[in-house]
Design a protein around this nucleic acid. Structure first.
Length: 222
DNA sequence: ATAATGATTCGCT
DNA sequence: GCGAATCATTATG
């Protein structure tokens, strides 16, 4: 059977990949990639299984809607590969990968992860029993990985970045992927219907599935 | 299994 | 002040 996947065997992503202008496509393609937070030389992270695209200027759900520049949104205008991490509901740190060329305020929210490396560290951070609840949500995964706003604005492609992104050994095929509307943006009018959320169909580590997969729900209850 | 609610801080009007 | 790209807990059927 397969050896456990080692970070050493993975290729970092390219700057071209993260600077592509089509951020919806990037969000789709990032599913299956690997995110690592290096903590005292140890890898903590896993496979990205759920993402959402946010794209100024025409996306009302994007913090930089209409290209509004504030202290908070400024980093979204940087070139792809920077981290945009902000505090949500006063409690949760949400991790985004800034994307597109410089001056394009685009980002991909990382919503769920399949835990692979540093499980002990994650368990300790999360203090929760079920492994299915470790990283299946944008606030949960940052807590598990120890990601907070001290890492805001860091550049993931820098030589010794504490946060790194790696390519999948093989790309995910189209039939392994699901598309849905984005979550938690009811205030965004029309845009709340846009199909800009992507997740791995059979993953047990997705935050919220579409209607109708009863067999999964039974599985999840364990 | 679904619904309601409190937590808690920051950005912005 | 208001509301937020969320989550855990509690209550109820």
């Amino acid at each position: 059977m397969m050896q456990p996947l080692s970070v050493k065997d993975l290729q970092p992503v390219s700057s071209e990949f993260l600077e592509q202008k089509d951020t919806v496509r990037l969000a789709r393609e990032l599913v299956g990639h690997y995110l690592v937070h290096w903590i005292e030389g140890k890898a903590v992270g896993g496979k990205i299984v759920e993402t959402e695209a946010y794209q100024a200027p025409h996306d009302p759900a994007c913090h930089a809607h209409l290209n509004r520049r504030t202290k908070r949104t400024e980093i979204m205008f940087a070139k792809g590969g920077h981290a945009y991490i902000y505090l949500c509901y006063g409690i949760h740190h949400l991790f985004n990968i800034v994307s597109g060329p410089e001056s394009y305020a685009h980002a991909v929210l990382i919503r769920a992860l399949e835990p692979i490396w540093g499980r002990d560290f994650m368990d300790e951070n999360r203090k929760i029993k079920s492994t299915h609840n470790l990283t299946n949500g944008p606030g949960k995964l940052t807590q598990a990985l120890g990601i907070d706003r001290t890492l805001n604005e860091s550049y993931l492609l820098a030589q010794n970045s504490p946060l790194q992104l790696f390519q999948p050994p093989a790309p995910l095929s189209a039939d392994e992927l699901m598309v849905s509307k984005r979550i938690g943006i009811d205030y965004a009018g029309d845009a709340k219907e846009w199909p800009w959320r992507f997740y791995e169909k059979q993953s047990l580590y997705v935050s919220k599935r579409l209607f109708g997969d009863k067999s999964f729900l039974r599985h999840e209850a364990n």
